[in-house]
Design a protein around this nucleic acid. Sequence first.
DNA 1: TATATTTTTTAGTTTTGTCTAAAAATTTAT
DNA 2: ATAAATTTTTAGACAAAACTAAAAAATATA
Lengths: 217, 217
Amino acid sequence: MTHSEENYLKAIYHLTSVLENEISTNAIAEKMETKASSVTDMLKKLADKDLVHYKKYQGVSLTNKGLHSAKMIVRKHRLWEVFLVEKLAFSWDEVHDIAEQLEHIKSEQLVNKLDAFLNFPTEDPHGDPIPNAEGNIIKVEKQLLSELQEKQTGICVGVKDTSSEFLQYLDKQGISLGSKIEIKSREIFDLSLKISINGNEMTISNKIASNLFVRKV
Amino acid sequence: MTHSEENYLKAIYHLTSVLENEISTNAIAEKMETKASSVTDMLKKLADKDLVHYKKYQGVSLTNKGLHSAKMIVRKHRLWEVFLVEKLAFSWDEVHDIAEQLEHIKSEQLVNKLDAFLNFPTEDPHGDPIPNAEGNIIKVEKQLLSELQEKQTGICVGVKDTSSEFLQYLDKQGISLGSKIEIKSREIFDLSLKISINGNEMTISNKIASNLFVRKV
DNA sequence: TATATTTTTTAGTTTTGTCTAAAAATTTAT
DNA sequence: ATAAATTTTTAGACAAAACTAAAAAATATA
């Protein structure tokens, strides 16, 4: 499988978890920052290799084979992210681009040895789940901080937006995975929240709260 | 720089250390298991990018820029080999193909952090030197075991052939980097050697002795 | 020196992944 | 239901990296 094919599979996989049903050519083109015609070309190739179900004008979905391949790519990406942060001391906002390259390294043995070396982590540095060697994922029930009611408390377990801008903002505010966040009050006008995080009080916008995953406690 | 361009630079670099003068198109084609016409095509591209000095029919040599790029690729390859052996418990005969992929990952920060994580090794698992971040190489004086005289002793510091067949043979015989080898006697007829290695006596062929580097002691 | 052999380059093709422009199908709106 | 707008596909082109076959240059041999 080529890098390009792998990138398409991964894009379809990520879109599937957001959009539920069949994925449109345009959605893929937008996600991959390419042209719809290029996507159509690739979808034919992926269908030929039995990696996607594809019917002209009807959108695509992953076959079992394609789903498994996609999970293995995501597995590699997230394991490498753990390696970069835990072993090489990268910060969580620096690892994505490097992991984008590393995820294409082909060696099942390598992935599994890396997994063992890292002590079989179940989540990457952003709180996203890491599929195991069989492709199984441990789902942690989590919700957006913005969905909590006043006086409720949650533990930060993930981020929705993984851009370095957002991650650096969180670093600056002292918010990280594991932080305990209580909603003190919600401003009706702009839905901004007054929160206390590990004791400190601060105000965050709805946009921030809509990109932080928490586990209610 | 593309993977292909990097592979050509690396091939020219390795050939240079063996052949001294200008490298021929055919030598590169043989090394890379490709056709001379493909090599010619690529040499033009590399010359356009100022990575090689190339004159039609005259062979090529690396420019300073090309030499530095080649060293950085070799650096990455050998650092990843150290990682695979020391951290992931691969054996020295398994790492080459994986390192061939990893050497193309582009991130200066990654290489340098990996270097630090591995504690700045100067040699890879086969005893080959690792260029530092500036491209400098610590040359260790070494010679082939086959060049030693009877009664002389050496410490095994490297291998010339890095094929898994040869490396597995060495594992089987208990020969590894650091082994102390004394030449007991040389058979004139086939140049085979009776040696003692860490106490054990054994006989090895000239072909084996011609692929083991030692430092005389 | 002239001829034969080897090496290297050129010319033209293929494959992969991309693009633009135009056509076709589908969806939305009147 | 028909027209308008949007989405998707097709057709044709291009660049990168490889190939084959043939031409050109260099080297070796008689």
